[in-house]
Amino acid sequence: MAKRSAPAGHGGTPATAALTRAGIAFTAHPYDHDPAAPSYGLEAAEVLGVEPQRVLKTLVADVDGRLVVGVVPVDRQLDLKALAAAVGGKRAAMADPAAAERSSGYVVGGISPVGQRKPLPTVVDASALAHETVYVSGGRRGLDLELAPQDLLRATGASAAAVAR
């Protein structure tokens, strides 16, 4: 996989800039996003021709009053109890979308686990480690970044745990 930033005409995002700064190889995959798509993640998998298990969605949760990021395959759901346990917490609920946008610097549907405005504790579902590469949001709707799962962990300071159901 070649190390590169976003393709010409698509502009960089904080996610592509963070990966480039860290010297992490990634491939940008822009696509025409349909705002009417019922699931942005499943739309990305279909349009890019990738198995849904390799396309990861980034979800922000509130665990005992602090924001935490869970990254799970788009065809699965975030297990809030497992996420809380993975970060040493007791209770978890999905974060208010406005709080997730303020903290991450991204819009809902385009939140990337990489290059967030305020780095948050991040847990990537352990199933991601079974793949040579995975896809995550590039920081806006219609842009996914392909990278090795170990590089995703490194770029986000994440741990891996079973947090999908």
Rank of each mutant, 00 (worst) to 15 (best):
L59R: 06
P73S: 12
V69T: 04
D64Y: 06
D75R: 09
A100R: 02
L80A: 01
D75Q: 13
P73I: 04
P73E: 13
A95K: 03
R91E: 14
V68T: 05
R102A: 15
G88S: 07
A100K: 04
V60N: 11
L67T: 00
V71W: 10
P97W: 12
E101W: 09
P97G: 03
D79V: 03
P73D: 10
L67R: 01
A99P: 05
R102C: 13
K81M: 00
R91T: 12
A84K: 03
K57S: 08
V87N: 00
A98N: 14
L67H: 02
G89R: 06
M94W: 09
A100S: 12
K90T: 15
R66W: 07
D96P: 03
L80W: 06
E101P: 07
G89M: 10
V72I: 13
A93L: 14
V55A: 05
L67S: 00
A99C: 12
V55R: 04
L59C: 09
P73R: 07
V60C: 13
E101Q: 15
A100N: 07
R66L: 09
G88A: 10
A85M: 07
R91V: 11
Q77E: 15
A84Q: 04
L59E: 11
T58C: 14
V74Q: 15
P73W: 12
A85V: 13
L83E: 00
V55H: 03
E101I: 07
K90G: 14
K81T: 01
A95R: 05
A92C: 12
D79L: 00
V71L: 10
L67I: 00
A98L: 10
A98G: 14
Q77G: 15
Q77H: 14
R91D: 13
D79T: 00
V63M: 06
L67W: 00
D96H: 08
G88M: 04
A98F: 13
P73A: 12
A95D: 09
V87K: 00
K81L: 01
V74L: 14
A93S: 15
R66S: 14
D79R: 05
D75F: 12
G70E: 02
G70V: 01
A93E: 12
D79P: 04
L78D: 02
A82P: 02
G89V: 02
K57T: 10
V87P: 02
V63G: 00
K81H: 03
D64G: 05
K57D: 08
A93R: 15
A86N: 01
G89D: 09
A98R: 15
G70C: 04
M94F: 15
K57I: 08
D96R: 04
R76E: 14
V71I: 09
K81S: 02
G70R: 04
D62Y: 10
A93V: 13
D96T: 08
V87G: 03
R91F: 15
L59Y: 08
G70D: 02
A99R: 09
D62F: 11
R76Y: 10
Q77D: 14
T58W: 09
A92I: 08
D79M: 03
T58M: 14
P97C: 07
A82E: 01
V71K: 04
V87H: 02
L80N: 03
